[in-house]
Simulated assay, not measured.
Amino acid sequence: MKFERFIVGMGEANGYVIYDENTLDALIIDPGDEETVFIKYIQKHGLKPKEIVLTHYHYDHIGAVDVLKEKYNCPVSIHKKDAAGLQDPKINHSFRGYRRPVAIAPDRILSDGDIIQAGSVVLTVIHTPGHTPGSVCLMVKDENMVFTGDTIFDDDLGRTDLEGGSAESMRRSMVNKVSKWSDEIRIYPGHADSATMAFVRAKNTEYLDMLR
């Protein structure tokens, strides 16, 4: 299994391509903008995108979805509670300065515990509402890594004051889901750098406050 991070768009969001290096089957996670960056990487490595997986519906994580979906004819997945937001530019295009609105009808509706697979790469969907009602994290099977979108970062948590956000839901996600992850697990968030859960437990004061 291999993966690559791309920092794209005015919000400097992280998008990822993760793939089976033998079959070259790939998953695209949160392609927020600059579709040519993803396309060049996919072409360079001869990858075969099987699915576009979204951790939530916010504009800075979905800006290149429509172009990539059309180019690779692959389905788009999002949690059922974020499906409406993905299809409504008035909700997901709520920030000034973004290049264009995006409205996508998802092809696959995700629920907690669902499995997403491309070759030997297997992701488990973990529903972690708070930043949005349908925010999810994606746990990689047999690897100590989780793609966390805007749920949790190295030193803070995703905002809960935007459309659909909820501080109480975020607290439950931290207590009931994220706090169960071992120190060895490394999170790969929707912005900024990766970190181990050991680092999060030592430095992330917002996370620690939620647990209290």
Rank of each mutant, 00 (worst) to 15 (best):
S120A: 06
S120D: 13
V122P: 01
V122I: 14
L123G: 00
T124Q: 04
V125Q: 00
V125N: 00
I126L: 13
I126M: 15
I126H: 05
I126D: 07
I126K: 05
H127T: 01
T128P: 04
T128G: 03
P129L: 06
H131S: 06
H131E: 13
T132D: 05
T132P: 06
P133G: 04
P133I: 10
P133T: 08
P133L: 12
P133S: 10
P133F: 08
G134A: 03
G134R: 01
S135F: 08
V136H: 04
C137G: 12
C137Y: 03
L138F: 06
M139Y: 15
M139H: 15
V140H: 05
V140G: 04
K141I: 12
K141W: 13
K141C: 12
D142I: 06
D142V: 10
E143G: 05
E143T: 12
N144M: 09
M145S: 07
V146P: 00
F147I: 07
F147K: 02
F147Y: 14
T148A: 10
T148N: 14
G149I: 07
D150L: 14
D150Y: 10
D150F: 15
T151K: 12
I152T: 07
F153T: 08
F153N: 05
D154E: 14
D154Y: 11
D155E: 13
